[in-house]
Design a protein around this nucleic acid. Structure first.
Lengths: 115, 115
DNA sequence: GCCATATTCAACCGAACGGTTGACGATCCA
DNA sequence: TGGATCGTCAACCGTTCGGTTGAATATGGC
């Protein structure tokens, strides 16, 4: 307990700043996944993915539950609510339609996302 | 043109991950400000604030216009739209009421925000 | 008991971050 | 012209970040 505990928004936004982690969140949008399965599409070591998942868990964006020898990762969308509320103060965005979201997912995945 | 240009969301979220920069954005919500005036409430050097402003400008969250010898900083709320759209895909948040925003501004300012 | 599988730990590396200080180029004004 | 103000640049410093590798720690199946 030496470090003075950063603001929750710090860790949430920092977690979202990495494209690998955003890709992971997108994958978890489909379904819960084991760590190994999360790592499979990425061109980096399992340990690296494990660290990314730890960052996401630290930020509260996912939870991890160990069942047997596999650790399941589950998206925790409520953690985004605080960040979303903060951002929407700047300009009163329209409620978002899912078509726009689909388009952003495509640009995200088709551009340095999962390799 | 050596570095391969990161995804726009990378720079936006990274910019938002720092409490000083979020505090600056909150200040600019009130009005356009000169660099020196932005720096005034913070317990750090002018050069440091200048760097923070450069990061915000790089992310498109603000624009800077030099008029005479003072450089004016202006909030650019549209840059948050992409990030907001991305986030809202995770869980279909209700359109946010401003009361909630006020509450978050208070926790932000009253806790390691502006000194 | 043994081996394979799932995941993390520990040490290390280079690059980026957040801050400092001091010097510098512009610009206003008297 | 000269001095004060505004802001950035350049070099430096310590810490964090994103990745690697190799060893260690469960757990499950035969």
């Amino acid at each position: 307990m030496s470090t003075p505990a950063p603001h929750p928004l710090d860790t949430v936004f920092a977690a979202l700043a990495d494209p690998t982690r955003r890709a992971i969140l997108t994958m978890l949008l489909e379904d819960d996944m084991a760590v190994t399965d999360v790592a499979e599409p990425f061109a980096m070591s399992l340990a690296a993915i494990s660290k990314h998942l730890a960052v996401l868990a630290e930020a509260g964006l996912i939870t991890q539950e160990k069942r047997g020898r596999v650790k399941w990762c589950k998206l925790e969308p409520d953690a985004l609510r605080a960040a979303s509320v903060w951002m929407q103060g700047f300009g009163q965005f329209d409620p978002v339609d899912l078509d726009a979201f689909e388009r952003f997912l495509e640009t995200e995945l088709g551009d340095g996302g999962v390799s």
